[in-house]
Amino acid sequence: MREENINVLYIDDEPNNLTAFRAAFRRDYTIFTAISAEEGLKVLGENEIHVLITDQRMPKTTGIEFLESILDTYPDPIRMLLTGYADINAVIDAINKGQIYRYISKPWDEYELRQNIENGFDVYMLRKMNKQLTEDLASANDQLEFLLRQKLLS
């Protein structure tokens, strides 16, 4: 059993999809939903999101455009693109521009999506631990350099 609950944000312009997603996964994860990219951005600003799932075809902003637009500000969430349309160009753009972890077809298979969320969270945590270990190593290296300089000066 994991110590931390998984925070999942699902963005889709269809209210029925948001309701179905929340109903399917609310017992296992903390679910945040947004009906637009703008609303999704607000949720990201107010919560630590581990896994971000967005629909591709939405008004104003596509899922890929949204994922690409948040890379600098919110680089940590694991990104997944959900769509009912099999467009190879969208898949390529999602991978190259939005840095997605998974491309999922609608209607989703609940077991498969649950596995993708779990695996995505594992990647999130590994990246977080790697970042912390890198920072710890840099700090230890700085301390060793300081001690070495002190020893050389004495």
Rank of each mutant, 00 (worst) to 15 (best):
M1T: 12
E4T: 08
E4M: 09
E4N: 15
N5F: 15
N5K: 14
V8S: 09
L9W: 10
Y10R: 08
I11F: 10
D12M: 13
E14L: 13
E14M: 06
P15I: 11
N16I: 13
L18G: 12
A20L: 15
A20G: 05
F21I: 00
R22I: 02
A23L: 11
A24W: 05
R27M: 06
D28A: 11
T30E: 11
T30D: 09
F32T: 01
A34I: 00
I35A: 12
A37G: 15
E39V: 07
E39P: 05
G40N: 02
L41S: 07
L41E: 08
L41W: 01
K42R: 04
K42E: 13
V43N: 05
L44H: 04
L44S: 03
G45T: 05
G45V: 03
E46C: 14
E48A: 13
I49R: 01
V51A: 12
V51H: 06
L52R: 02
I53A: 14
I53G: 03
I53Y: 10
M58G: 06
P59V: 05
K60N: 11
T61P: 05
T62P: 07
G63N: 07
G63T: 07
I64N: 09
E65M: 07
F66G: 04
L67A: 11
E68I: 02
S69Q: 07
S69T: 11
S69C: 00
I70E: 03
I70C: 11
L71G: 04
T73R: 13
T73A: 15
Y74T: 02
P75C: 13
P77M: 07
G84M: 08
G84D: 05
Y85P: 06
Y85N: 11
A86E: 09
A86P: 08
D87C: 10
I88L: 15
A90L: 09
V91P: 04
V91T: 01
I92F: 07
D93S: 10
D93F: 03
D93R: 09
D93L: 00
N96I: 04
K97N: 02
Q99D: 05
Q99R: 09
Y101P: 01
R102A: 06
Y103W: 01
I104Q: 04
I104L: 14
S105C: 12
S105A: 15
S105K: 10
S105G: 15
K106N: 12
P107D: 11
P107R: 04
D109P: 11
E110H: 10
Y111I: 12
Y111P: 02
Y111D: 14
Q115V: 11
N116G: 04
I117F: 13
E118Y: 03
E118Q: 13
N119P: 02
N119R: 05
G120I: 09
G120H: 08
G120M: 01
G120L: 01
F121V: 08
D122Y: 15
L126E: 02
L126P: 01
R127V: 02
M129L: 14
M129H: 01
K131Y: 13
K131L: 08
K131Q: 09
Q132F: 09
L133W: 08
T134Y: 12
E135R: 11
E135N: 03
E135W: 10
A138M: 14
S139Q: 13
S139W: 07
S139V: 05
N141A: 10
N141V: 05
Q143E: 10
L144E: 10
L144H: 04
E145C: 03
E145F: 15
F146S: 06
F146A: 14
Q150L: 13
L152F: 12
L152N: 12
S154E: 06
